[in-house]
Design a protein around this nucleic acid. Structure first.
Lengths: 228, 228
DNA sequence: GGTAACCGGAGAAGATATCTCCATATGGAC
DNA sequence: GTCCATATGGAGATATCTTCTCCGGTTACC
């Protein structure tokens, strides 16, 4: 209890070390963005122009690196939701959020993996949920109160829409990277209430607790169990 | 040019060999269904109760096995489309097809991989396209002529819908294997024409040739390039 | 009963990814 | 300028997997 503020004060890292740390993070962002989380730390090292040893000294394993990136990504998503919530038009806000989230996910091959990376230690997906859930719920409920959004939709449905759209984006990415907008527009059309034909939705939405399980679907290592 | 009909008449396979061949195919169906194409041939062999050698003697590599399964899967899909086309109601037919195709894809983890497996030698996806494209086009155009389907949709859109839904199914499979029906119903709602609000779709649909590229997106081996 | 065809499965060969080690280099306190 | 705690690079030890081969022993069929 001498000087530190919390638990963080081991030593300020030598200047070259800190510079390399930043390089590594930048490289990881790029590599994971284009190739996904299954890229090896060797790849990241090469991309950063440092040795593997340097990477492993700073980040014991891929999970640590993912965790470091996790924070900023979640924050970007949360900011998106907050800005959407600040828009006066509830429908427009919801659309902005969906569009922005899908754009992020479409452009970043590793993002959904980072967001859904099941981490043994601290459950990152729990943090993601804690941060995002209230915002998305607010967006959804506000639009529903205004009668702009089908009342039978649930906040968890928004996440599924994002997952579906980003899957489409990943499939089409080499051919037509923007085609996902077509399908988002299509789905979006189905979200409005009071159309002449509205099919009652079969299957109740996923409860948050179920969604939590889905969010943990990407296993560590390159265990070929996770879906996309 | 002595006795054969085409190119097929090397020797009728000894009885035990044929029995094992069938066992292997059955095992491959099961293993690929539950774990996807990245299961190893050793897994298939173990599941079939035969030695790896036996598998490799019959199927030089995983591609050969996939190819053998490919035929029956494509045929099942084509049958689905033909039955849908035989239904008098064009909208109902299209829905039957979408529902059936999504159900197949949701229940079979390896199916979309088999259908989209880029094969060096004979281009299987080309065969799939040749078989399916006319049927799906007929289904779509018939519904559009009847005014039951938005006119701005294209046959390739149906495939994308199937891909998106099956991605959702794979994500949710351990938690709620049937939730995909919820999202199919949602999308389906957006397919009808003449609703009070119809957003014009941005991005033109994929041309068949572009779709062909998308279909070849799953690389050989376990090359971590393919999307889901 | 003879033999061609077949079987099983150990293990060779090849890929990859993870992570360690240590000789060498460098920042920065004094 | 000196010194040494702190860093660095990258070869290579480990570990894990899959694919595919090989061959002694077995089996179907005439």
């Amino acid at each position: 209890m001498a000087d530190s503020q919390d638990v963080q004060a081991p030593r300020p890292l030598r200047r070259d070390a800190e510079r390399n740390r930043q390089r590594i993070l930048r490289a990881a962002r790029e590599v994971f963005t284009t190739r996904g989380l299954q890229a090896s730390l060797d790849d990241v090292a090469r991309h950063a122009g440092v040795g593997v040893g340097t990477v492993y000294r700073r980040f014991p394993d891929k999970e640590s690196l993912a965790q470091a990136l996790f924070e900023e990504r979640i924050e970007a998503m949360a900011t998106l939701a907050e800005q959407a919530l600040a828009e006066p038009d509830s429908w427009g806000g919801l659309m902005s959020f969906l569009d922005g989230a899908c754009a992020h996910l479409a452009a970043d091959r590793g993002l959904h993996q980072i967001l859904m990376y099941a981490s043994y230690g601290k459950d990152l997906t729990a943090r993601a949920r804690a941060r995002m859930q209230p915002l998305v719920t607010a967006l959804v409920q506000r639009a529903q109160r205004d009668g702009k959004l089908r009342p039978d939709l649930h906040p968890t449905d928004m996440l599924f829409i994002e997952l579906m759209i980003s899957a489409a984006a990943r499939y089409a990415e080499p051919v037509r990277p923007e085609i996902w907008r077509r399908y988002l527009a299509l789905i979006t059309d189905a979200l409005r209430p009071g159309r002449d034909v509205t099919t009652p939705l079969p299957e109740p939405p996923l409860e948050p607790q179920e969604m939590a399980e889905v969010m943990r679907s990407i296993p560590h290592r390159s265990d070929p169990g996770g879906p996309p």
